[in-house]
Amino acid sequence: MTMQTDTNRRIDRMAVLAGAALFGLALAAPASAEEIVVSNYGVSANGMPYAVAMEKGFFKEEGANVTGILTSAGGGTTLRNMLAGNAPYAEVNPNAVIAAVQQGADIKIVAGTVLTVAEFIWAVKPDSPIKSVKDLKGKKMGYTNPRSTSQALATLVLQSGGLKTEDVELVKTGGFGEGVAALDIGLVDVTPIPEPLWAKFQSKYRAIAKASDLLPPMANVLGVAAGAGAAGKDDFIKGVIRARRRAVDYMAKNPDESGDIIAKVYSLEPAVARAAVRNLISSKTNGIEYWGAGYIHMEGLQRAIDVQKMVGAISGDIDTAKLVDTRYLPDDLKALR
């Protein structure tokens, strides 16, 4: 979601290092089962394959006895939970990973899980005079929070229509659901509505911009492991990645059944979950799928970093090659793309 929905942009250095220390101490106690951590699981579209993998038994079949999926509302919190709770694997957005690494955390990107931002739609009321991005000049455009993904993407969307951020009034709504409410009462003229919210509300609003049409592929969320702290858990992490890959393939072949599984975990109407799955499974951005099999798309990762730098969420030089560890990937996915 998840470049996911609202994320924590800063990770307290002491919390990270203390969590890492706890992580290392916990290695002394062997465990046959593990929890994993997924940002915005049960809310954002990024985590949907994990629900399918859990329900279909793919984790156990691939040798990863996942006993539960922990979640949090932001990338920074996800990483703290991963390190302090001894979780071998997490899914989180790129800027949270980079912020953690820059503050000393031993974290590696081990899989590319969501490769585009195709879940994002910018919508208006049906009777709005706004027909395209070019019509947004002088209008009020919603976004969730400063330095958020939605703020960064708003900049790119405006650029696609030949506009600058100063050509509109950017209005902080505090969340995507809150943005929908703001649109209803006229506080904003346009707001981002990501999946699965869009599948729920698409009959009520009109899309004027779709990320899959306007924006290039960029790393949305990533699978990560705690670097050296993951020693001894290679098989588990590999199993998680294989199981998630199977789930993505299963969703493509069985979108309605997958939607029904997701509906239970996400507390959605089955029709809404089915529509969200179908929308995202069929999405291609310059030939790149939304839910990736696990391969790491380096161009998309660099683009995500560049976008976050635009809104000040990331600073400094980033050597992306040093962030990546492909040893957990199946052989056919190890080549960087």
Rank of each mutant, 00 (worst) to 15 (best):
K131C: 06
T149F: 14
E119H: 15
L115Y: 02
Q103S: 14
Q151C: 07
S128T: 08
A123I: 08
L153A: 09
K140H: 12
G162R: 05
D127P: 12
T78W: 03
Q151T: 08
G75D: 01
D106Y: 07
A73H: 11
G177C: 03
T155F: 13
A182F: 11
T71W: 11
A84Y: 14
S150I: 09
E119Y: 12
V92T: 15
F120W: 15
A99P: 00
G138D: 05
G186Y: 00
D189F: 00
S148E: 11
A152Y: 02
R80F: 13
V180M: 10
S148H: 12
I193C: 06
G85K: 08
I98Q: 02
Q159V: 11
V133D: 03
S148T: 08
G161N: 06
D135Y: 04
T116Q: 06
T173I: 03
I185H: 04
L158F: 07
R80A: 08
Q151L: 13
V188G: 01
A84K: 12
A73P: 08
G186A: 00
G174Y: 06
V101L: 10
E119K: 12
P129A: 00
L163A: 03
A111R: 04
N93T: 08
Y143M: 11
A111Y: 05
T165P: 13
Q103F: 10
V171H: 04
V190N: 00
T144V: 14
N93G: 06
T155Y: 14
A182W: 01
V188T: 09
A105I: 12
T78F: 04
L183K: 00
G75H: 01
P94R: 02
V133S: 03
L136I: 10
I121W: 13
V97P: 00
S148G: 15
G177P: 03
P129G: 00
P196Q: 13
V110L: 01
D184P: 07
V97L: 03
N95S: 09
M141P: 04
V133I: 15
L83Q: 06
K108S: 09
V168S: 09
P192M: 05
G174H: 07
D106T: 06
S132L: 09
G76E: 03
G186I: 00
A181V: 12
V97C: 00
P192G: 02
K131S: 12
W122M: 13
V114A: 11
L170P: 12
L153Q: 14
L170M: 15
V124G: 03
V117G: 14
A87E: 07
I109E: 02
P88A: 05
I193Y: 03
S148I: 05
V157F: 12
P196L: 13
Y89A: 05
T149Y: 13
G186T: 01
Q151N: 11
A111N: 08
I121N: 15
I121H: 15
V124A: 05
A181L: 10
I130D: 02
V110Q: 02
V157D: 02
K172G: 04
T116S: 12
G112F: 01
V114M: 12
A181C: 01
L153H: 12
L83S: 09
V97G: 00
G85Y: 07
K131G: 10
S160V: 10
V117K: 07
E169I: 14
K131M: 10
V92E: 02
S132G: 14
G76V: 01
